[in-house]
Design a protein around this nucleic acid. Structure first.
Length: 648
DNA sequence: GATCGCCCTG
DNA sequence: CAGGGCGATC
């Protein structure tokens, strides 16, 4: 892997950067990698979301079958078998990519709710097309041989009329369904959003008074993107309206201009609208479009495609852009604390709720925002101090209460002499934001509450925080059949391994905090603890192994030489492969440093012959045990930051 | 006694 | 990665 810029690439001369078992140049790590020159610029993301972008977006798979019975297909794979010959037609029409294209990797199985919705739309479209074809396409065959053309024409006309009636009925039925679903959505989320927000702030106020740490962090978990999105939506609304109008030139024929604003803004559609029987379609589409004659369906799909693609892409671009801008232009000449101050400022923008800004309360340190239990202020400082006392050669670690939120170069204690290359945007952040944005986009679509039924292993209790629940995407997926529990466990295993980057010795309470959707019982708890025990085991085994190798090869023998662990070293690759198999997580610098420390401890112990003592590792364990750092808040979100495609 | 962590084994 | 044994700690 080694996607990141090498943080030890610019060592001060007194450092001896041993490249422990470095990979040969050009060796490519497994998994995807960022170009070392910098992160992918955000257009790379948006183009994936643009309608014509990725290859797969060009083909559209009808989410539903087109039999008159209206039977619905849930299985996407079956869809490929059917509809033969329709491929060219789809492409010719420039059909929208399936919504699943917009989901993060591993979230491709979008909900039956969304599927139902699309199915309805497309079924109606298909019906219209069929009606049209049956009317226009019979042509000469329809002419009876006996010259009974008049009679035939009349029959055909009646047939068409019947088809139209049928179509109308279905349309009405669909419209009713749609309205009902919208009402459900409104009832389920619309109200709760406000209540939830109020509740959250109330709780937070209480938490500020009496509690700190874990609970406090939990309150904050959604605040950042939430704050951003509210602003973003406000800012974008006007643009979006204009954009929608451009995209839908025919709209003005169908809607009264006085209602435009209301209709184009999903947020502006209130319950009153629903109650009045107005049909509210997300993506700015309105009743007139829906009822358009042949071609209206295409317009609809086109509009849906373009609106979804461009809106999501725009928002994501902005997110990425904001993150890239939030990085201080230079850290040169700044003491670690200053640098941290900047970082804190940048981070707080995303991690603190809006109320933090309103409260004049001056945060004495970053510690008020510390999410975890471990990083009690003094303790966190103590950890760094300890690290330094043990190994003065190690850079001074700033508090990493939200370590990957900003590129690790901010934490780089030795500012590079050249303008540092931008570090990769932390994938979890992107993942989080993507999920959040997409969840919000999908919130515009009708949902079945029934779909949110909890699995026996997943204990669903709606977030009090934001609208919609961040776990929405996960829940949109049908509950895992029992045969998939293993996969589910694998996903949790991935998340647990990523947590290991931050905490090697999590308490059971910590685990409970970071696996909120797990029903903990003794068995589950001990299993999770066992996992971390295994993780540690692997960690220490590798440390010992490489330390012994270093001793054998006489590395780090010189005076003042410091054994360093580089990100392109074999040891790092081994660790990364184990804990971050899919390589889509930026290994936090802190973990590298702790690993380095462990390596040195093993190295010096072995070198000094202390390994003859059967208990020689215990002192090392004690040291490492004290170096746990807080796990970022986004680990509290079910399904995040794991990718379901990366299973163990 | 319960819990946890390490070690060993498969 | 899981199971079991064993010791340490509370």
């Amino acid at each position: 892997m080694d996607p990141s810029p090498d943080h030890f690439g610019n060592q001060p001369p007194q450092m001896c950067p041993y490249r422990l078992y470095s990979s040969p140049p050009g060796a490519t790590p497994s998994g995807p990698a960022f170009p070392s020159s910098g992160p992918p610029s955000y257009p790379l993301i948006s183009h994936l979301l643009q309608p014509g972008g990725p290859r797969n977006c060009g083909t559209y798979q009808y989410p539903g079958s087109f039999t008159e019975s209206g039977s619905e297909r849930e299985d996407e794979e079956d869809e490929e078998d059917e509809e033969e010959g329709a491929e060219g037609e789809r492409q010719g029409r420039g059909m929208a990519p399936p919504l699943s294209q917009f989901l993060p990797l591993g979230k491709r199985r979008y909900s039956s709710d969304v599927g139902d919705w699309c199915q309805e739309l497309l079924r109606m479209k298909r019906l219209r097309a069929q009606t049209f074809i049956s009317g226009e396409g019979e042509g000469p065959q329809g002419q009876g041989p006996g010259g009974a053309g008049l009679q035939d024409r009349r029959e055909r006309r009646e047939g068409r009329w019947q088809a139209r009636q049928e179509l109308k009925e279905k349309l009405q039925e669909t419209r009713g369904k749609l309205r009902e679903l919208q009402q459900r959505v409104w009832q389920a989320y619309g109200r709760r959003q406000r209540e939830g927000e109020e509740h959250r702030w109330a709780e937070e106020g209480a938490a500020r008074g009496g509690r700190r740490g874990v609970e406090d962090g939990a309150m904050h978990r959604d605040a950042g993107p939430e704050v951003f999105l509210e602003e973003e939506e406000e800012n974008n609304r006007d643009q979006d309206r204009a954009h929608s109008q451009k995209l839908l030139p025919g709209r003005s024929h169908n809607v009264s201009s006085s209602n435009d604003g209301e209709k184009y803004s999903n947020k502006a559609v209130g319950k009153e609208d629903l109650d009045k029987g107005k049909v509210w379609l997300g993506c700015g589409l309105v009743r007139g479009e829906w009822e358009a004659r042949v071609g209206g369906g295409q317009k609809f799909v086109q509009a849906l495609k373009q609106e979804l693609g461009s809106a999501v892409a725009r928002v994501i671009d902005r997110v990425v852009h904001m993150y890239s801008q939030s990085q201080p232009p230079s850290v040169a000449g700044l003491a670690p604390l200053d640098g941290e101050g900047q970082k804190r400022e940048g981070v707080s923008r995303f991690s603190r709720p809006a109320t933090s800004l309103e409260q004049p309360e001056v945060l004495p340190t970053a510690l008020k925002s510390l999410p975890g239990k471990k990083p009690a202020p003094s303790q966190s400082s103590h950890q760094n101090l300890l690290l330094h006392q043990l190994h003065p050669g190690l850079p001074h670690l700033p508090h990493t209460y939200l370590p990957p939120l900003l590129p690790t170069r901010v934490k780089e204690p030795f500012p590079p002499s050249y303008p540092p290359a931008p570090a990769p945007l932390s994938l979890p952040v992107l993942h989080y934001t993507m999920q959040h944005l997409l969840a919000r986009s999908l919130a515009n679509l009708p949902l079945h509450r029934e779909c949110l039924s909890p699995d026996t292993f997943l204990d669903f209790h709606p977030h009090t925080s934001s609208f919609p629940p961040l776990r929405l995407l996960g829940l949109l997926e049908p509950p895992l059949p029992s045969s998939d529990r293993g996969r589910d466990r694998g996903v949790r295993g991935v998340k647990a391994k990523l947590m290991f980057f931050y905490t090697r010795y999590p308490s059971s309470n910590t685990l409970k905090t970071y696996f909120p959707d797990v029903k903990f019982n003794r068995c589950i708890t001990s299993q999770l603890i066992k996992w971390f025990s295994n993780f540690r085991e692997f960690f220490y085994i590798q440390m010992e192994r490489f330390a012994r190798q270093a001793v054998r090869e006489g590395l780090a023998g010189g005076h003042g030489a410091v054994l360093r662990l580089r990100r392109d070293s074999e040891l790092f690759r081994t660790l990364n492969l184990h804990y971050n198999k899919s390589n889509d997580y930026h290994v936090p610098e802190r973990f590298v440093e702790v690993s380095e420390l462990a390596l040195r401890e093993f190295f010096t112990a072995i070198q000094a012959g202390r390994d003859s003592d059967p208990c020689w590792k215990k002192s090392i364990y004690k040291i490492i045990c004290k170096l746990d750092s807080p796990v970022p808040d986004y680990f509290r979100m079910p399904g995040c930051p794991t990718d379901t495609h990366s299973t163990t």
